[in-house]
């Protein structure tokens, strides 16, 4: 399963969902397919689910809203341990990702 255009690529491998490139989609409707892909990963896997954002250079505010919704979704599923891997290399990540931890304190946020 993979979603891509010229600027980004999102794909799932086992329990891991990778986000790569620059995501600047217009709004919730545009982000819906990505939400489905990631939510499916949350639903289909027991135990650990990893969102790997280390290759995601930029995410606009609608995208951050998507991550918040996914975090809230994970919070509803007690059997899922969500891990979000990020990097301090990209400023938006250190600015926005800690909010997810606030939404869901059990979230394993790995900011390298």
């Amino acid at each position: 399963m993979e979603i891509r255009d010229e600027n980004f690529r999102i794909w799932a491998e086992n329990e891991c969902v990778y986000f790569d490139g620059v995501l600047r989609l217009a709004g919730p409707d545009a982000y819906a397919p990505i939400y489905s892909l990631a939510a499916a990963a949350l639903h289909e896997n027991n135990g650990r689910v990893i969102f790997d954002l280390t290759g995601l250079e930029f995410l606009n505010s609608s995208g951050i809203n998507l991550l918040a919704k996914l975090t809230i979704e994970a919070r509803k599923q007690s059997d899922v341990q969500l891990v979000i891997r990020g990097t301090a290399q990209y400023p938006w990540q250190s600015k926005s990702l800690p909010n997810l931890k606030k939404l869901f304190p059990q979230l394993d946020l790995q900011l390298a």
Binding site: A26, G27, P28, N60, S61, S62, I64, N65
Partner: peptide
């Protein structure tokens, strides 16, 4: 402040 997305909503 900054509302996510744009448009009427």
């Amino acid at each position: 402040g900054d509302v996510t997305g744009h448009g009427l909503e």
